[in-house]
Simulated scan of single mutants.
Amino acid sequence: MLMGKSVIVTGAGGGIGRDIALAMAREGAKVVVNDIGASVAGEGQDAGPAQAVVNEIKALGGEAVANTDSVSDQAGAARIVSTAVEAFGRVDVVINNAGILRDRFFHKMSAEEWDSVIKVHLYGTFYVSRAVAPHFKEQESGAFVHMTSTSGLVGNFGQANYSAAKLGITALSKSIALDMNKFNVRSNCIAPFAWSRMIGSIPTETPAEQARVDRMKQMTPAKIAPLAVCLASDAAADVNGQVFAVRNNEIFLMSQPRPIRSVQRSEGWTPQSVAAHALPALKASFFALDRSGDVFSWDPV
């Protein structure tokens, strides 16, 4: 499905990114495997993980090169794109997968924990996407697949930084889809449910949290790859600006915010009439303080 296409996969040294990179190669893509080789918290740097995935792809008979630049650095993001152009002559697909976690309850979260996660996820997605945009525009084709999360789409405890970044990515993806649709460039999101090092760092301080993590261990990163490959291919030429989720063998199309109910007063509103009429009228449609695990409450199939 991807024969001859040049694909960048960020954060591809392990977990979801690795399985996506391998799946892309199996479908004929030439792959830039980007990973700085850091810990889940973003500490340390090691070229080994990226090169190991490159070696796996070459063992399959595919073409791949390693890159260890950080997506959180604008110049580094530009070098990731340059690596693809220099190695393969062009770029056709970008999978924005790189990420870190610094989980902390909001009232305890430091500015550094906020900044570091926003920088890798949201800034990183922007930097890499912006660096490749001129190439996509010039060739009048290209596909983005960005990793979002139900932590942002629905909510979760202890992940204000991660949730904000991931919901920001969905809005960024929609803006890219709107702005670049005229150049035949597509931008979609996947919210993956998969066991990974990042999931493994989620706090499990209660039996309910432990049970949720145990369920997630059943969902391997390889389950995400088929949708990512399809969205990157010409078979998904008419799919743009969408948000999907993958949970084991289930694929979901996620909703996007739209008005669900309204109230109107021809004479306008006062604080008192809002309290007396508007809020009570709308209350039946209020959303509960759900977390991702509350919405996806059934065991994966």
Rank of each mutant, 00 (worst) to 15 (best):
T125H: 13
E138K: 11
S70N: 06
N97G: 15
T125A: 13
E27C: 13
S173M: 03
A284N: 11
P271Q: 11
S70R: 01
R18N: 14
A52S: 14
V213T: 09
R26E: 11
D19Y: 15
A275V: 09
K217D: 05
A12Q: 04
S187A: 15
A222E: 14
K283M: 03
E86H: 14
V71W: 13
V93Q: 04
M180I: 02
D290K: 11
G42W: 15
A222W: 04
G61V: 15
G42N: 12
W269T: 03
L227K: 09
L22E: 12
A160W: 01
G142V: 08
W114N: 14
R90D: 11
A23R: 04
D290S: 15
H107A: 13
A245I: 05
I80G: 06
N240C: 08
N188S: 12
K58A: 14
S262G: 09
K108H: 02
P257A: 00
Q256P: 02
I95C: 04
H277S: 01
E209N: 00
M216I: 05
G293P: 06
D103H: 12
L231T: 05
S233M: 02
D115Q: 03
V117F: 11
A278T: 10
M198K: 04
S72T: 15
G268D: 00
A25I: 12
K166D: 06
G152K: 13
A281W: 07
V301E: 05
T148H: 06
G124F: 15
V33M: 02
Q242Y: 01
S6F: 14
V213R: 03
R261E: 10
Q45W: 14
G28H: 10
K137C: 03
A165M: 11
G15R: 12
V65K: 08
G44D: 06
L60W: 07
G268T: 00
E267K: 02
L279G: 01
E209G: 00
V239Q: 00
G200L: 00
V145Y: 04
G152V: 14
W195L: 09
D238G: 00
V33I: 06
N34R: 07
I80Q: 03
A194R: 09
D238T: 15
I16T: 06
